[in-house]
Amino acid sequence: MSIWNTVIAASLAVMALKLIGYVVPTSFGEQPAVQRMSSVLTVALLSSLVVIQTVASSGGVAIDARVISVLAAGVMLMLRAPFIIVVIVAAATAALLRFTGVMP
């Protein structure tokens, strides 16, 4: 599947999911089971994506500068730093570790 096909299909799916919310009855979204499933899915997926972006490397697991960077991001989040600062600190940490040759 080409990148364009993936981009278009995924975009239309996400757009449709937003629009559906304006046509289903309000009572559907108020059901506790539905709300719970949505928040569980979001947490599980985001957590999984953190791990993939941090350690996945061509079909295996690799410990490199990304791990230290994510730990640095975690510290910034604990200090209640704004979103953009968290991201910049993580990038700067990885860049520095690689520039100095400490970690790949």
Partner: peptide, 15 residues
């Protein structure tokens, strides 16, 4: 994955 992450937007829309 994109769609599953987008499910929460449906709930936001209902809200």
């Amino acid at each position: 994955s994109a769609a599953l992450l987008g499910v929460r937007n449906t709930l936001y829309a209902v809200t």
